[in-house]
Design a protein around this nucleic acid. Structure first.
Lengths: 218, 218
DNA sequence: AATCACTTTATTGTATACAAAAATGTTGAC
DNA sequence: GTCAACATTTTTGTATACAATAAAGTGATT
C-alpha cells in the first residue's frame, strides 16, 4: 500500500467535500491541511489541483482554492445531463447488449429487490450501481461509458438523498424492469426513453426535496 | 498579462500535444521541460497534473508522465460520443432556442459559405465553431454545454483533417442548414437526428482517412 | 467616525534541497 | 555471450526556503 500522498489526500478531500464536511465557498487552506495530513504543502497543492480539475473546487489565482458545491440550478442541469447521457447509453446498448449482460442486469435487479425487502440499503446502492454501470459498459463505447461513470459518481451523494423518499425505491425498481425489458427487446428508442425518465425522475424528486428544504428554512 | 506559469505551461503543452509535436507514449521529462520553459520543476509538475486530469497524458506512479494520444478505436468512440452529445444539445435546443440564437446560427452559416467561396479556411473554422457553440449554449443547460465544449475542443485537431476532404465542406454546409431548419421548426427529434448524423459523418470520414493512411503505410 | 496612505502580516507561487525509488551500468561467474 | 548481483546514476515525490502578491492592520487627516 505505497500510494502517493497527493493521490491519497485528493481522495480524502474529495470524500470530505462530498460528505458535506465543507460548505460552498470554504477556502482550502494549504497550511492547515498540510498540518492536518502531516505532510508539507507540496502534496496538498497537487491534491487541490486535482479537485479543481474535477470541478469540485475553484481556484482564484493568488487567492486560493475554494470548494464549489453545485447550487440548485447546476444540480438540476447535472441531473438532466445524466438523464440524457444514460438515455444515449441505453439507446446504443439496446443494439449492442450481450445476453450475459442482460442476465447481469436481471441479477442486479433481483438483488436490489432482496436488499429492499431486508432493508439493506448498502446492498441496494451497490446493486443499483452495478445495474447502471453495466448499461454504460454495454453502450459498446468505453469513452462514453467513462464519461457516464464520472458524472454518476459526482451525483452519487445527491442521488442518495432522493432515494430516501417514501416509496421511491419500489418505484425505481419498476423503472429498472421497464429498462431491462426495453433492452431485451432491442427497442433503442424505448430504452432511451425509459432511462431518460428514470434518471429524470431522480432529478425531479431531488428538486422537490430542495424546495421543501428551502421553504422549511424560511 | 500576469498569469501563473503553471497555467501558461499547461496550455502550451496541451497545444504541443494537440499539434502532434509529441507521439503517443512519449515521456514528458520534467527536467528537460523545466529548462525548456526556463522555470523550475514545480510549475512543470503542476502543468503535467493538469494534462493528466484532462486525459491528454497518463501518470505511472514513480515512473513519470507519458503523453496519451487516442488510438483509432478511442477516436471513433469520441466521435460517436460527440455525435450523441450534440444530438442531445439539439434535442433540448429545439424546444428552448431563442430567435436571436436562430439568427446567429444563420449568420454563422452565411459567413461559413462566404469563407468557403473565398477559400478562407480560418474564417470557416471560426464560424463553424460559433455555429456549434451556439447550439450547445441554446440547450439551456450550461453544464451540458460545458461538457460538449470540452469534447469539441479535444476533437478539434482531428476534425480539421476530415474537413480537408474534397466536397466535404459543401456537404457540411447542407447539413448545417438542415439543422437550422429542424431547430426553427421546433422538431426536437429531427434536430437530434440532424446533429447526430452531421457529427457521425465527420467520424465516418475520419475513419476513412485513417484506414487509407493505414493501407498506404503498408 | 470615516477614509486614505502606508506598514505589516499572511498566503500563494516558485525555486531549491533532499529522500526514495526506479532505471542504468558494471562486474564477475558460468 | 548471458545472466545475475551489486553499485551508480536518474528521476520522481516531498520538504523547505524564498519571492511576489494580496489581505489585514495602523495611524494620520478630514
Amino acid at each position: 500500500m505505497d500510494v502517493r500522498h497527493a493521490d491519497r489526500i485528493a481522495d480524502a478531500l474529495e470524500e470530505l467535500v462530498f460528505t458535506g464536511q465543507f460548505n460552498d465557498g470554504d477556502r482550502l487552506d494549504e497550511i492547515r491541511l498540510a498540518k492536518q495530513f502531516g505532510v508539507s504543502r507540496t502534496p496538498i497543492r497537487e491534491a487541490l489541483q486535482r479537485l479543481v480539475a474535477s470541478g469540485i473546487a475553484e481556484q482564484l489565482p493568488r487567492r486560493g482554492v475554494f470548494v464549489r458545491q453545485p447550487g440548485p440550478v447546476e444540480l438540476m442541469e447535472m441531473f438532466e445531463t445524466m438523464a440524457e447521457i444514460e438515455a444515449v447509453c441505453g439507446r446504443l446498448a439496446a443494439r449492442r447488449i450481450s445476453d450475459e449482460a442482460l442476465a447481469e442486469l436481471e441479477q442486479a435487479n433481483d438483488l436490489c429487490r432482496a436488499a429492499m425487502a431486508s432493508q439493506d440499503t448498502d446492498a441496494y446502492y451497490r446493486e443499483n450501481e452495478r445495474f447502471h454501470h453495466t448499461i454504460y459498459a454495454q453502450s459498446g463505447n468505453s469513452y462514453l461509458a467513462g464519461q457516464a461513470l464520472r458524472l454518476h459518481r459526482r451525483l452519487k451523494p445527491f442521488r442518495r438523498l432522493q432515494l430516501r423518499l417514501r416509496g421511491r425505491l419500489a418505484q425505481s425498481m419498476g423503472e429498472h424492469e421497464e429498462i431491462v425489458a426495453a433492452l431485451r427487446s432491442g427497442d433503442d428508442a424505448r430504452a432511451a426513453t425509459a432511462l431518460r425518465d428514470h434518471v429524470g425522475i431522480q432529478g425531479e424528486k431531488f428538486r422537490h426535496l430542495m424546495t421543501e428544504l428551502r421553504t422549511a428554512a424560511q
